[in-house]
Design a binder for these strands. Structure first.
Lengths: 156, 156
DNA sequence: CTCAATTATATTGTACACAATACAATATCC
DNA sequence: GGATATTGTATTGTGTACAATATAATTGAG
């Protein structure tokens, strides 16, 4: 195997490390979120909506999308499932009928109390010390910011 | 907002940083892989198969799964699509008929030459220096190893 | 005022992920 | 050697992702 072959070596690749680590972490969340009946992306949506409810802010589908970097093709069916379960209310704006706002219901807000234990329980289940995880998080955020500033010109 | 609310703050969470960074990196690959007509997970499968072809090793579906951390429910349809395109050959073993081996065809091997340019082109498109990315990759790998050693006892 | 461009969301189709289950073949225990 | 457990892959169903397209409402130019 010559040196150019190493370039394609799977284990050398950042992409795969990210891909595998992401799925490993998601699978750590799975059992905890199953208790709430949420999937991982649903949990992320609820996090944003809980934050907005606390700050008394109105959230649109487009706002959720830019925050979570998801498009409407992903969010619309996800939000409809949360609405069917009574956790969320979708409402078309009266000023601009193109806009759909999303807010947690009382049941959705109540779920927040159960969700509060998740971050600390997850941290325990990793077996990795928290300073190291926070450093990793910061590095990921920094790289993400750089990537997004690069693709911004013709953003989705 | 009291301090316990911070725990659920989206931006504090490693999980989201991983989730978003993974999708951002995948979307950087997308245009390059589209030239080859591959999706990102298909590309990862091809990387393993190219490596195996070089080493003259036989790869099973289960081997692909443990390497990529994917199960047969994901791999079987993916491999069938690669087979339909003539990039891959699936063959049931004669010694043990439960086993299906997967290998690249001549066309699949030829694609490797085109794929060689991908890592360096991707690196350029990130705009992040490579030392930093390698450090991030190593840290992710290390955390992944720790997570997997924890969940290993009752692995999927 | 009206047509064109833009904006915001929804819909459709393809392709992962993964849990749950099915099923067939091999291995093992007695 | 036959019941039982294990192993390896396939199938099914649910839920994301995302490109491409559709639709409807708003904005803006003339």
């Amino acid at each position: 195997m010559d040196s150019t072959d190493d370039i394609l070596d799977l284990d050398n690749q950042l992409c795969f490390a990210l891909y595998a680590a992401n799925r490993a972490v998601t699978s750590l969340y799975r059992p905890l979120l199953t208790e709430l009946g949420l999937t991982y992306p649903q949990y992320l949506v609820m996090l944003v909506l809980w934050e907005a409810a606390t700050a008394s802010e109105v959230v649109r589908v487009s706002g959720l999308g830019s925050r979570l970097r998801l498009d409407s093709g992903t969010l619309t069916p996800l939000l409809k499932r949360l609405e069917e379960r009574g956790l969320v209310r979708r409402q078309r704006s009266v000023e601009d009928e193109r806009v759909v706002t999303v807010a947690v219901t009382a049941a959705g807000l109540a779920m927040r109390e159960q969700a509060k234990s998740i971050p600390s329980r997850l941290l325990c289940s990793t077996g990795v010390d928290s300073e190291r995880l926070m450093a990793l998080r910061d590095e990921l955020r920094s790289v993400l910011a750089r990537l997004e500033s690069r693709q911004a010109p013709s953003a989705r």
